[in-house]
Nucleic acid binder design. Structure first.
Lengths: 244, 244
DNA sequence: AAGTGGTCTAGACCACGGT
DNA sequence: CCGTGGTCTAGACCACTTA
């Protein structure tokens, strides 16, 4: 690795951090796609001219950030958006009795719309740029519990057809269909009163309290690729979180 | 460390995990109180008969779980409930403009009450056991934003006097006054309609949507030491969370 | 200067999964 | 059996803090 001592003093970065960056760069540029096996620790160490322990430290961090998955005896693999990840890392609604289950989705509409001023600023686009606009209701059994509205910047999803069927797990869809991997999301929660549309969709009275979850989803290189507003009934379910 | 090979096969635990347990045991039994310095890596390694690297791995895990804090050149210290920890790890309400600030507290009442059936079961106590019951309103500036109700099992807080003044940061208070350190909390969030009491306390109409945060706080040895219900106005603030 | 944690190395051995 | 990741060691050196 480029470990010239004179620069090292000016902008010191540990070797393992440089190794991590080199590996992350290859995840971003798609050298190793989701599910692919990385070279073994020994191979990476030899290639980069560092010790195996340094590679291990870089990979341990990447495991902690869920960029890769390691399996003893098998190898190291790029993390995928499987059902597990959706359920345990990107879905926090749980039944009050503790049962956790991904709800089904009933898509109501998929439209191409021009970005208004706010959406354009949010996605760093010009006003009027194309957005994809998805509305769906999510149900547990026959009971509707979430009214969901999703916005995508169309330029990041080239060839997206509003008529094509959408699976329940959108992040897996983004990943396999558009090579867009969501690695991180920020959520902001509020309590709001149901408006006429949500009230009808969820079968509650107008003004009924709903949990509003406003989510921004980002890729590994920090690009915002999805904005999502979920309005949830919380009579029988809750949003679970652990503080440490 | 007790590394008898015949047991090691039956119930294999890595050495560093055993080291961690040994260290955590001393945190639980109070050998090292909050803010105290742990022995250096070398001393711990010598004492337990393992290498420095193994101690380091155990301590790294404990840093990740926020049980200890390490400062280069200074040493390793038992984590404390300072203002930072309260604000960044145990308080998730943020103003919509991104400003984060701990609200002030106005205590409304502190009472000793007998546990009803539900509370007794929650705290693993007999019905009628003594609970301490705190009600307070939390304000940003002059604006009330949270109506808060807190239950404590009295037997874990010996000598607690309902008349004594309560500071804003309760976890720091539990820690210094009763040697109770909260290390972990589970929260479950719902949207609810304001009842008459909360409506009056928060200056909203009855039925107004409020964010209900139901928190259970645990000590290092897994004992439930606090149950808390916070009802929050979310017109200008939100609950922030990051998914990874 | 001395002591602490932080990085990096080289090498041994163990546990696991597939051939 | 071999190759993978996982553990453990011993030792060198660096970065930071305090005295």
């Amino acid at each position: 690795m480029s470990q010239l001592p004179e620069i090292a003093q000016a902008l010191y970065r540990p070797l393992y951090a440089q190794v991590r960056e080199a590996l992350v760069r290859r995840l971003i540029d798609g050298t190793w796609g989701p599910g692919a096996a990385l070279p073994s620790e020994i191979q990476i160490a030899a290639e980069l001219g560092v010790s195996q322990g340094t590679v291990r430290k870089a990979l341990d961090e990447m495991v902690a950030d869920r960029l890769v998955v390691r399996r003893q005896g098998r190898g190291t693999f790029v993390a995928e958006h499987d059902a597990n990840r959706a359920l345990f890392h990107f879905f926090r609604i749980t039944a009050d009795d503790g049962v956790k289950q991904l709800p089904d989705s009933a898509v109501i509409s998929v439209k191409s719309v021009p970005a208004d001023k706010g959406s354009a600023a949010l996605f760093s686009l010009v006003e009027g740029a194309e957005l994809i606009d998805i509305t769906r209701v999510r149900l547990l059994g026959a009971a509707p519990i979430i009214s969901e509205h999703i916005s995508l910047p169309a330029d990041a999803f080239p060839g997206f057809d509003p008529a094509e069927p959408l699976p329940n797990n959108l992040y897996a869809f983004y990943e396999t269909r558009f090579q867009i991997t969501v690695t991180r999301a920020e959520e902001s929660l509020k309590a709001v009163a149901a408006g006429p549309v949500e009230a009808q969709q969820l079968g509650v009275a107008q003004g009924h309290p709903l949990l509003a979850i406003d989510r921004r989803a980002y890729t590994l290189d920090g690009r915002l690729v999805e904005a999502r507003l979920s309005l949830c009934r919380t009579e029988t379910h809750h949003y679970a979180n652990v503080l440490g």
